[in-house]
Amino acid sequence: MIAFLLRRIGQGLLVMVAVGMMAFALFRFVGDPVNQLVGPDASEEDRERIRVEIGLKDPVALQFSRYIWRAAHLDFGFSYQFKQPVTKLIAERLPATMELAFVAVSIALVLGVLLGVYTGLHRDSFLSNVFLTVSLIGISLPTFLIGILLIFLFAVQLKVMPSFGRGQVVDLGFWTTGFLTASGRSALVLPAITLGLFQMTLTMRLVRSEMLEIMRLDFIKFARARGLKNRAIHFGHAFKNTLIPVITVTGLQFGTTIAFAIITETVFQWPGMGNLFLRAVQTVDIPIMACYLMMIGFLFVLINFIVDILYFVVDPRLRHVTKVAL
């Protein structure tokens, strides 16, 4: 198992180098960074001087290794637009996005699993059909539309929820949180629902189909024949066996949720990374885009790694591969 994990870490590093290559390529192929740094009326000598100064004249391999080296030390250079270190800009906005994604994924997981188990067990009940029909809406409506509808209903018509921003936040020094104030919490609700709805419906449908599958298996029948309680059969025996695919999909979805919080953040003017990224795209602020790319890449590598570990936790068959014989 240790060997497996080490191999996984090695593969993760390779992926990160590949992602770094793409991030680096952005600098070389999208626009001329010098244009971003100097005014339009700068002389050709000035431009040339800056090129040498920031190392654009060095061999590509050297530039690349320098970029990776700095990235490994969390130095992603200065934003063209804000004239501030990219790391600082991202760090300021990371808590907003992480809190939003965390709440969204929590809602999605808890509700998705509960509804999935329910609809899986009561496949023909009226309520199950209602949930399934509603979940179709969650899957097929685009995120921005759901966000706008929620704002229209709860912020504009009913005036019970704020329509934008994060509300009051508390600065903990390394992290700013909206969890500690009432306005911060209520500001989280609508964007979190918007962001989590798709994942919730996905989780629900996944858990449902896995439950349907597993409830047909022999060991469930045998568990019934042993007179176990329904709750033990449904959650202990059936649900636990659905976990492997659920963990896989949820893990990937968590990454996607963070990466694609962009739309939700735009709709709700959420001061997170997605918003920052979008502004960076509009102003061709390459260092921010490159850093965002690297960060999301790292997030996926990390999540996949955690998912791999969870497999071992959940499924004993993987833990004991070496001692199967007997």
Binding site: D218, A225, G227, H237, P316
Partner: peptide, 25 residues
């Protein structure tokens, strides 16, 4: 019915490979 099963009437199925839950000892 649950109290009957296992307690008063036990059952052994055909395929021992699939009768046991793989995730529990």
């Amino acid at each position: 019915l649950r109290r009957l099963r296992g307690r008063r009437v036990g059952m052994v199925f055909q395929d021992p490979l699939t009768s046991l839950n793989p995730l529990y000892t």
